[in-house]
Amino acid sequence: MMNLLSDEMRRNPYPLYEQMRASSPVLHVPSMDLWMLFDYESVKRALTDHDTFHSNMAGISGRGNPEWFVFFDPPRHTKLRALVTRAFTPRSIASLEPRIRDLSRELLDAQIERGEMDLVLDYAIPLPTMVIAEMLGIPVADRQQFTRWVDVILNLSHDVLGGEAAQKATNAFRVARDEMAVYLAVLLEERRRAPKDDLLTRLVEAEVDGERLTEGDILGFFQLLLVAGTETTTNLVSNAMLSFFDNPGELARLRSTPQLLPSMIEEVLRYRSPVQYVFRGTSREVELRGGVIPAGKLVLPILGAANHDPAQFENPGRFDIGRDPNPHIAFGHGIHFCLGAALSRLEARIALPDLLERLKGVEPASSEPWQPRHALHVHGPARLPIRFEPGRRSSDRV
Rank of each mutant, 00 (worst) to 15 (best):
Gln111Thr: 10
Ala166Ser: 08
Ala94Ser: 02
Gln111Leu: 07
Ala166Gly: 04
His158Asn: 02
Gly115Ser: 15
Pro90Asp: 01
His54Gln: 09
Arg148Ser: 07
Gln111Trp: 10
Ala133His: 01
Asp39Phe: 06
Phe146Asp: 06
Ser55Glu: 00
Pro128Asp: 14
Gln111Asp: 08
Ile138Trp: 07
Ile60Asp: 02
Asp51Lys: 05
Asp33Lys: 11
Arg101His: 07
Trp35Thr: 01
Gly62Asn: 03
Pro128Arg: 15
His158Pro: 00
Pro98Gly: 08
Met57Trp: 01
Thr52Val: 01
Val140Gln: 14
Met57Thr: 08
Gly62Tyr: 03
Arg91Tyr: 00
Val150Glu: 00
Leu154Met: 12
Glu97Phe: 00
Lys168Ala: 04
His54Glu: 05
Pro90Arg: 01
Gly162Arg: 03
Asp73Gln: 07
Arg86Val: 00
Arg143Pro: 05
Leu37His: 06
Trp149Phe: 02
Pro74Val: 05
Glu97Met: 08
Gln144Leu: 01
Val160Tyr: 00
Ala58Asn: 08
Asp159Tyr: 02
Ile132Gly: 14
Gln145Ala: 04
Ile100Val: 14
Glu41Tyr: 09
Leu161Gly: 01
Leu154Val: 02
Ser104Arg: 13
Arg81Thr: 09
Ser157Thr: 13
Leu127Ala: 14
Asp39Lys: 10
Trp149Val: 09
Arg45Cys: 10
Trp68Pro: 03
Ile112Val: 15
Gly137Leu: 12
Ala169Ile: 15
Lys168Asn: 05
Arg143Leu: 08
Ala124Tyr: 05
Pro30Gly: 11
Leu161Met: 09
Asn65Ser: 08
Ala82Ile: 05
His77Val: 01
Glu113Val: 06
Ile100Leu: 02
Leu136Glu: 11
Asp109Met: 08
Met130Trp: 12
Val152Pro: 06
Asp51Tyr: 01
Val160Lys: 00
Val140Ala: 11
Gly59Thr: 10
Phe88Glu: 06
Val29Trp: 12
Leu154His: 03
Ser92Asp: 00
